[in-house]
Write a protein that binds this DNA or RNA. Structure first.
Length: 883
RNA sequence: GCCGGGAUGGCGGAACUGGUAGACGCACGGGACUCAAAAUCCCGCGCUAGCAAUAGCGUGGGGGUUCGAUUCCCCCUCCCGGCACCA
C-alpha cells in the first residue's frame, strides 16, 4: 500500500477500471427497482464551470448512493447544444457554430469524465444532431396538425440598424448591444404552442409533486396565475361594438372612472389616426424592451384617446386612455380603472386628474383620500354602489356578474396569467421549424418521410441568420400541391430541445420512434437535479411537453420528474480597481493576496503581480463580467476529483449558495490524506480481523464484545450514532452534514488509538476486539464516503481487503444494539436559562428526576430560596424549574 | 414593480417536530517536531467584564406568543434568484 495519498494515479486507475468493466452501463433487464437520476444537461459553452461541477457531483452522489442501496440506476449525460452563444462565438472567432459546439463538447466530455461520474456514456446525446431534432420536428408536425401549434404576431426587440431581432439580454439600457441603436418593438409572425390549453392540468399537477421543493411549486402556481373574476364589456359610445376587459374585482365595477388600453390595442391605433399627439405617444411606447420587469418599473404614462365607452351598469360615460402599463399580452389588452381601490390606477388618476370614486368600505374607512394606503385595496362591503350597497366581496361579485350576464355585457370568468409559448426564433443555430409555406396551400407541415429538415452546418456567420439567405435551404416544393414553395427559416426556441431530452435518454439510439418501449421502463425521472434559476420556465415547459407527449401516446405517466433538487449558485469574492468614470477593472481572486489581521479578519488586498492594493468587492455569482470565476480544471489537476467533490458537498447544503474558498479545498484534501494515513496505519489490524472471520461476521452480541472496555462500547456507540445521523441527512439531501459525520467518525477513530491501549490492558479476553472495531468502523466510513469520493473509497476498499468493489457492497445501517444507552444526560434550567446538567438512569421516573433536579446545588443557587412554581420535564432532554 | 428565497462567530455552516446556540471545517493565535521552511501533531478560539471561578449579552432590526424562540406570528431593512428571446 502506498504510504502517501496520490489522487492522480488513484483516480486514473479507478476510472480506467470502471471503463473496462462498463460499470455504469444501464440496462432494462434487472430484478432491482429502477432509479433514473438526471442532472440538467450542460450547454457546451467551452469548459466546465463550478456550477456544473456542483450540479453533477450532487447528481452523482444520489446515483451512487441509490446504486449501493440496491437500485438499477441510470444516469445519463448529454448536451443542450443549440443556442445563442455559439453564434456570438462564431462572429468573434470566425468559426462555424457547429464546429465550435462540437469541439467544446469534446473538451467538456473529457472534463466530465475526469470527475469520475457514474454516467452511462453510451446514452450521450447532443440536441444539435439531426437524429435528435428529427423527433422534435416530428412532434411539431403532429402538434401542428392537432391545432396545438398556431401562428400569430407578437412583439420582438428589433434593432433598426443591424436589422435583426435581439434577445432580451442583448438589449442594454434600451439599445442594441452591438449597434447601440435604440431598440424598438416590432410585431412579427411566430408559431405558438398552446400551453394555456394545459393551464388547469399544469396547475393541478403541482399538488401531486410531493417530491418537489415547496418554493418551486409556489412559483409555478403563481406563474400560471389562475384568477377568478369577470369579463366586463363596455359598449363604445359610438354604438359599434364593445371594449372587453377582465377584472378580478367585479365588486368595484361601480367605482370604475375610466378605462385604459395598451398602445397596441386596435382602439388606440384607430384613435391615433388624425391625432398626432396620440400617434407620437404610441410610437414612444414602441421603444424600450418587451421584458415585463422593465414594463413594471417604468414611469406610468398615458394619453386620452378622445373616445368614450359606456359603463355597463350605470350608463356613465367613461373616457378611454392609452396607458403604457397595460400589457397587450395579458387578458384583453385593456383594463377598467378603479382608482379608489387599485394602487396603480390611483397613481395614474392622481397624475392625470381623473376622478376617484370610493365604493368599498375598508379598514381605512369610507373614503380614499390621498396618499394611497394599502388598506384601500382590501375586500370589504360595497358603499355608494346603488343596489349593491351592503354586499361583501363574494356577494357583490356574484350579483354584478349576474347582472352583466343578463344584459349580455359580461360574465364570470377565470383568467390565467400564463401565456402561450412563442417558439419561433429568427436565429440560425437552432432546430429548423418543419413548415413549408405555399402560396396556395398555406402553412404545410413537412411530411414524416421528409424529416429531418437538416440545418446546414457549414456556414459563415455575420449579422442575421445565414439560412435566411440560402436558397438551397429554403427553396422547395409544396408537399401538398407540388408547386413552388418556401421553407420556414426560423428555428425553435432552445427550450424546446431541453423540454424532452430526458425522454430520449431512455432510448437514445431509437430510429423508429421518438421514444420506444424502453421509455416505459425508465420514465418518469426519479430524481432531477439542477439550478434554481430553472424553477419556472424550463421546468414548466418540460412538464407541458410531457403532457403533450402523453397525449400522442409516447409516454404513460402524467409528470416527468418525481423528485426535484434545486441547487444554489456558486459564488466567490470579487476584487477590482477603479478606472474612473464609474468603470471597474475586475481582478480574478487567484491573482490577489488578501491581508489579514491577527484575528483573521481581512484588512486589505493586493495584486500579486504588482503588490499594489485592490478593492475588496462583494461576494457574487461566479461570472465572466465580475472575473471571479475559478476554473474547476485547475482544482482537479492539483487536488483530484475526490477533493473537488468533497469540498462541493461539504461547503454548503445543496440548495443554498456555495461560497468558493481555496482554504476550504485544502481542508477537504487534508481530510482525505488523513483517511489514507489512518488506513495505512491500520492495514494489518483490519486484514487480521477480516481473515479471522471464518464463519462470517464478527458477533457483536457475543462474549468477546460483552467483556470489552466501557470506553470501547462508548466508541462504537459514537460511530453508529454518526452513521445514523448520516443516513438521516442523506435521505433529506443534506450532504454537508453527511461529510461532517464522516469527519466525526475519523476523529473518533483517531482518538480511539489512545483508548485502545487502555482497553487491551484490562478488559479484552479476546485480543482482537479492537481490530474488529476498527475494521467495522472503517468499512462504515468508506461506504459512507464512496458516493461522494468514489475513487479513494474504492481504492482503500480494495487495499484493505474488504472486497472486489465497494459499489456492490451493501449500504451501511446503524446497529440498533450499539445505540442502546443505559444513562442519559439531562439539561437543568431555571426559568428557561441553562444552569447545569445531570446524568441519570434512562429508566428513572419523572418524580425522581424532579427531585434530583431540585437537589442540584446550582439549581438551588439560582432559585434563590423561592419555591418552584412549576417543573417542566422533557423526557430524555431537560428539566426546567420555574420560580 | 410582481413572484420566490435568504440573513447565525473573523468565514462556510450545524442545531431533526419550540428544549444545552455555534457541531464539523476553514482562518487566526500559542506550542511540539525541524538548522530552517513546508507537511504533520497538540492546545486555545462568539462578544464584554474578570487572574480565575463565573456572570451578563448574543442567531439582520423592532414587537408579540411561550416556562422556554435561530425555530411560531406581525411589521421593517438589506441581499439573492425569476419575470416569458441567456441557458
Amino acid at each position: 500500500m502506498q504510504p502517501i495519498y496520490s489522487p492522480t494515479s488513484i483516480e486514473q486507475e479507478t476510472q480506467k477500471a470502471w471503463d473496462e468493466a462498463r460499470a455504469f452501463k444501464a440496462t432494462e433487464v434487472s430484478d432491482k427497482p429502477k432509479y433514473y437520476c438526471l442532472s440538467m444537461f450542460p450547454y457546451p459553452s467551452g469548459k466546465l464551470h463550478m456550477g456544473h461541477v456542483r450540479n453533477y457531483t450532487i447528481g452523482d452522489v444520489l446515483a451512487r448512493y441509490h446504486r449501493m442501496k440496491g437500485f438499477n440506476v441510470m444516469q445519463p449525460m448529454g448536451w443542450d447544444a443549440f443556442g445563442l452563444p455559439a453564434e456570438n462565438a462564431a462572429i468573434a472567432n470566425n468559426v462555424a457554430p457547429a464546429a465550435w459546439t462540437y469541439s467544446n463538447i469534446d473538451y467538456m466530455r473529457t472534463q466530465l469524465k475526469s470527475l469520475g461520474l457514474a454516467v452511462d456514456w453510451d446514452r450521450e446525446i447532443a440536441t444539435c444532431k439531426p437524429d435528435y431534432y428529427k423527433w422534435e420536428q416530428w412532434l411539431f408536425t403532429k402538434l401542428f396538425e392537432k391545432g396545438l401549434i398556431y401562428k400569430k404576431t407578437a412583439p420582438v426587440n428589433w434593432d433598426p440598424v443591424d436589422n435583426t431581432v435581439l434577445a432580451n439580454e442583448q438589449v442594454i439600457d434600451g439599445r442594441g448591444w452591438r449597434s447601440g441603436a435604440l431598440v424598438e418593438k416590432r410585431d412579427i409572425p411566430m408559431y405558438f404552442m398552446k400551453i394555456t390549453a394545459y393551464a388547469e392540468e399544469l396547475l393541478a399537477g403541482l399538488d401531486t409533486l410531493q417530491g418537489w421543493p415547496e418554493q418551486v411549486r409556489t412559483m409555478q402556481r403563481n406563474w400560471i396565475g389562475k384568477s377568478f373574476g369577470a369579463e366586463v364589456h363596455f359598449p363604445y359610445e359610438s354604438g359599434n361594438g364593445v371594449l372587453k376587459v377582465f377584472t378580478t374585482r367585479p365588486d368595484t365595477l361601480m367605482g370604475a372612472t375610466y378605462v385604459a388600453v395598451a398602445a397596441e390595442h386596435a382602439l388606440a391605433t384607430e384613435a391615433a389616426q388624425g391625432n398626432a399627439e396620440l400617434a407620437a405617444f404610441i410610437e414612444e411606447c414602441k421603444h424600450g424592451s418587451v421584458a415585463e420587469a422593465d414594463m413594471a418599473t417604468m414611469e406610468k404614462k398615458g394619453l386620452p384617446t378622445g373616445r368614450f365607452v359606456t359603463h355597463p351598469l350605470n350608463g356613465e360615460k367613461l373616457p378611454v386612455w392609452v396607458a403604457n402599463y397595460v400589457l397587450m399580452g395579458y387578458g384583453e389588452g385593456a383594463v377598467m380603472a378603479v382608482p379608489a381601490h387599485d394602487e396603480r390606477d390611483f397613481a395614474f388618476a392622481a397624475k392625470y386628474k381623473l376622478p376617484i370614486k370610493t365604493v368599498i368600505r375598508t379598514s381605512a374607512g369610507d373614503a380614499t383620500p390621498a396618499p394611497w394606503q394599502d388598506a384601500y385595496a382590501e375586500q370589504g362591503v360595497c358603499i355608494q354602489s346603488g343596489k349593491y350597497d351592503g354586499l361583501d366581496f363574494t356577494q357583490a361579485s356574484d350579483a354584478i356578474s349576474t347582472d352583466l350576464q343578463t344584459k349580455g355585457l359580461g360574465a364570470k370568468r377565470t383568467q390565467f396569467r400564463l401565456r402561450d409559448w412563442g417558439i419561433s426564433r429568427q436565429r440560425y443555430w437552432g432546430c429548423p421549424i418543419p413548415i413549408i409555406h405555399c402560396a396556395s396551400c398555406g402553412d404545410v407541415p413537412v411530411p414524416e418521410k421528409d424529416l429531418p429538415v437538416v440545418l446546414p452546418e457549414d456556414v459563415k456567420i455575420d449579422i442575421g441568420s445565414p439560412i435566411k439567405k440560402m436558397p438551397s435551404f429554403y427553396e422547395t416544393s409544396c408537399p401538398k400541391c407540388g408547386g413552388k414553395a418556401e421553407r420556414e427559416t426560423d428555428t425553435m426556441d432552445t427550450f424546446v430541445e431541453s423540454s424532452w431530452y430526458y425522454v430520449r435518454f431512455a432510448c437514445p439510439d431509437s430510429t423508429n420512434a421518438m421514444v420506444d418501449a424502453r421509455g416505459k421502463y425508465w420514465l418518469p425521472v426519479d430524481q432531477y437535479v439542477g439550478g434554481i434559476e430553472h424553477a419556472i420556465l424550463h421546468l414548466l415547459y418540460a412538464r407541458f411537453f410531457h403532457k403533450l407527449m402523453r397525449d400522442v401516446g409516447l409516454v404513460q405517466c402524467d409528470e416527468p420528474f418525481v423528485n426535484l433538487l434545486t441547487q444554489g449558485m456558486v459564488v466567490a469574492p470579487t476584487f477590482y480597481r477603479e478606472l474612473g468614470e464609474g468603470k471597474k477593472q475586475y481582478i480574478n481572486p487567484a491573482d490577489v493576496d488578501v491581508k489579514l489581521d491577527d484575528k483573521g479578519r481581512p484588512t486589505g488586498a493586493t495584486l500579486k503581480t504588482d503588490g499594489q492594493p485592490v478593492i475588496i468587492g462583494g461576494t457574487e455569482k461566479m461570472s465572466k463580467s465580475k472575473n471571479n470565476g475559478i476554473d474547476p480544471q485547475s482544482l482537479i489537476d492539483v487536488y483530484g476529483a475526490d477533493t473537488a467533490r468533497l469540498f462541493m458537498m461539504f461547503a454548503a447544503p445543496p440548495d443554498q449558495q456555495l461560497e468558493w474558498s481555496d482554504a476550504g479545498v485544502e481542508g477537504a484534501y487534508r481530510f482525505l490524506k488523513r483517511i489514507w494515513a489512518f488506513a495505512c496505519k491500520n492495514n494489518r489490524r483490519i486484514a487480521e480481523a477480516l481473515s479471522s472471520r471464518k464463519l462470517g461476521r464478527f458477533d457483536w452480541d457475543g462474549e468477546a464484545w460483552k467483556n470489552a472496555a466501557p470506553s470501547q462500547k462508548r466508541a462504537r456507540y459514537q460511530i453508529h450514532q454518526y452513521l445514523q445521523q448520516a443516513n438521516f441527512d442523506l435521505d433529506r439531501h443534506q450532504f454537508n452534514t453527511v461529510v461532517s459525520a464522516a469527519m466525526k467518525i475519523l476523529n473518533a477513530l483517531e482518538e480511539d488509538e489512545i483508548v485502545a491501549v487502555e482497553a487491551r490492558q484490562g478488559y479484552t479476553p479476546c485480543g482482537n476486539v479492537h481490530g474488529e472495531f476498527i475494521c467495522e468502523s472503517m468499512s462504515i466510513l468508506l461506504r459512507l464516503l464512496s458516493p461522494i469520493t468514489p475513487h479513494i473509497a474504492r481504492a482503500l476498499w480494495l487495499e484493505l481487503g474488504y472486497g472486489d468493489d465497494i459499489q456492490t457492497a451493501n449500504w451501511p445501517k446503524a446497529d440498533e444494539t450499539a445505540l442502546v444507552q443505559d444513562e442519559i444526560e439531562l439539561v437543568l434550567q431555571v426559568n428557561g436559562k441553562l444552569r447545569g446538567n445531570m446524568t441519570v438512569a434512562k429508566s428513572l421516573p419523572k418524580d425522581d428526576i424532579e427531585k434530583l433536579a431540585l437537589e442540584n446545588a446550582n439549581v438551588q443557587k439560582f432559585m434563590e430560596g423561592k419555591p418552584a412554581k412549576k417543573i417542566i420535564v422533557v423526557p430524555g432532554k431537560l428539566v426546567n424549574v420555574v420560580v
